[in-house]
């Protein structure tokens, strides 16, 4: 009754989707992530911010076990998605990555048609029973990626022929085609112009309805615009984690304040 929220930006869900406890990552002798505990909510956009080399991307990559592919990387600690330990020996990383989609800094469509880019994941995961089914999945994913109207007449043109912003939205469509539950984004807009950035940000806000979205960004303003929760990393430590509006108006830790206000910390 006394709900005076000025906008819908406040977190509406408080179900924990991803729970990390005592996570440490070593690259050879480098201690890249130091004892990080964090609970990431479902149906929420969480932004990871921090200076270069602070470990935010490394931590993001722990969530879908991308660090497995790096020989010198050693990950310890506990990461659970919906209570399930993702580092358990019985978990198939390929299945995990279907559940936890990822979008990278530079748009990286496969050198195939727009249609095949999106259809690839559902095909190898056996999500479509027949051609009509697959068509539906592709259309739904492209609509979710907010790019359907722009490409529906040229689904068989190469994905690499699209503009940068379109390619990135295609990659997002590709990531959501396998019906993931978590979407990880590593600086998804840093190669895009402001208009394409705006479109991707709008898309991220829509994706929040169905997914838990985690975004790494160097743009403080982008973190402020798209996220409801913000985590600030510094030298491998998680310094502060809280509501985005709180972090950007009155951060608790002086290190956070120094970083976000552009002072030398």
């Amino acid at each position: 009754m006394y709900d005076n929220r000025a906008s819908e930006s406040a977190v509406t869900a408080d179900d924990i989707k991803i729970e990390a406890k005592g996570v440490n990552v070593h690259y050879g002798t480098t201690h890249a992530i130091k004892d990080v505990d964090v609970s990431i909510l479902d149906k929420t956009v969480t932004a990871f911010i921090g200076p270069s080399g602070c470990g935010k991307s490394t931590f993001l990559r722990c969530i879908n076990r991308m660090n497995d592919t790096i020989d010198v990387a050693r990950v310890t600690g506990d990461i659970r998605i919906d209570g399930e330990d993702i580092n358990d020996a019985r978990v198939d990383p390929v299945q995990l990555r279907a559940k936890v989609g990822m979008v990278f800094q530079k748009p990286n469509p496969f050198p195939k048609s727009i249609y095949d880019n999106v259809a690839y994941g559902p095909k190898i995961h056996g999500l479509a029973k027949n051609k009509g089914d697959l068509d539906d999945i592709v259309e739904r994913a492209l609509r979710r990626g907010a790019i359907w109207d722009e490409v529906k007449d040229r689904l068989h043109a190469p994905g690499t022929g699209l503009s940068g912003g379109q390619q990135q939205r295609l990659c997002i469509a590709r990531a959501v085609a396998t019906e993931p539950e978590v979407l990880l984004m590593d600086e998804p807009c840093s190669a895009l112009d402001p208009i394409a950035t705006g479109q991707v940000e709008e898309l991220i806000d829509e994706l929040r309805r169905d997914y838990s979205v985690v975004i790494v960004t160097h743009s403080m303003q982008q973190a402020a615009r798209v996220s409801q929760k913000t985590a600030f990393f510094h030298l491998g430590n998680l310094i502060e984690y809280g509501d985005t509006d709180e972090i950007f108006t009155n951060p608790k830790d002086p290190k956070t304040e120094s970083y976000i206000t552009g002072r030398i910390g």
Partner: peptide, 11 residues
């Protein structure tokens, strides 16, 4: 907290 911005024009 350090009191000066990286951008001195901001200060």
């Amino acid at each position: 907290m350090n009191n000066t911005h990286i951008s001195s024009a901001f200060d």
